[in-house]
Design a protein around this nucleic acid. Structure first.
Lengths: 116, 116
DNA sequence: CTCGTAGTTCGACACTTATCGTAGTACGGT
DNA sequence: ACCGTACTACGATAAGTGTCGAACTACGAG
């Protein structure tokens, strides 16, 4: 069984988390995971980069402590470490998620335009 | 008179702000400005880098839209763009400031230890 | 006008990072 | 056993970043 290293809460560093956030591809992953609210395989998120680059970004997120990754069969399931991050840096993840939703209006659901 | 370029609220990009935050020196500046709550000259913040490196970090913060810089005489005064950032990315700056205070307990003022 | 203070600009450099393609591994199904 | 899918590992590379020192500019004070 393949096991993946994750930082413990004590090992999570603010700068690493912020650096993990500071990339469009990784922000897209965070935004997607937040919206999904469940475990999502790498291939479900359609990043505009090659697979090897994708692997790189997922690793950065995991090693920073932002996401959790587990293998299930051939797939690798990703989810946000929401509670852990909230405990260490209260409000940080939520404000970033809200910011991504605000700056990238991706969900074009109809009749959802309150006067901006 | 020397004038400094600042991004308008519309020009402020989330990734740029997060990237500006993702550096220990710049986080220290942000933390200092937040604690001071006033305009602070560059030389007041004692960064552990050379002056030219300091200039670089201040510029990154300003161009990302995190701080405001104005000349007064020979000094350059810095302050957080707190209201602007709060309007664009609600809670983001505050959670980062709280996180810096949490991860770097620097202010050893006496009789200020409520049970952690 | 001269001097000192505060900060800038300009290379230069080492290091990191985002990116790719190719080859490889792990697992489930047939 | 074989195949396909999902992801990884390994260079390679181009671009970005943090750092410095040395020379420079802007301003106030005397």
């Amino acid at each position: 069984m393949r096991v993946l290293e994750h930082p413990t809460p004590e090992e999570i560093r603010l700068e690493a988390v912020l650096h993990a956030f500071a990339d469009p591809m990784r922000l897209e992953v965070v935004r997607f995971l937040a919206e999904a609210g469940r475990e999502v395989s790498c291939s479900e998120i359609d990043l505009a980069v090659s697979k090897s680059t994708g692997t790189h970004h997922y690793r950065v997120l995991r090693e920073a402590g932002v996401i959790n990754q587990v293998y299930r069969g051939t797939a690798k399931l990703n989810s946000l470490r929401h509670e852990v991050l909230n405990a260490i840096f209260p409000g940080l993840l939520d404000s970033v998620i809200a910011a991504t939703a605000r700056q990238r209006p991706p969900a074009p659901s109809p009749s959802q335009r309150r006067g901006e």
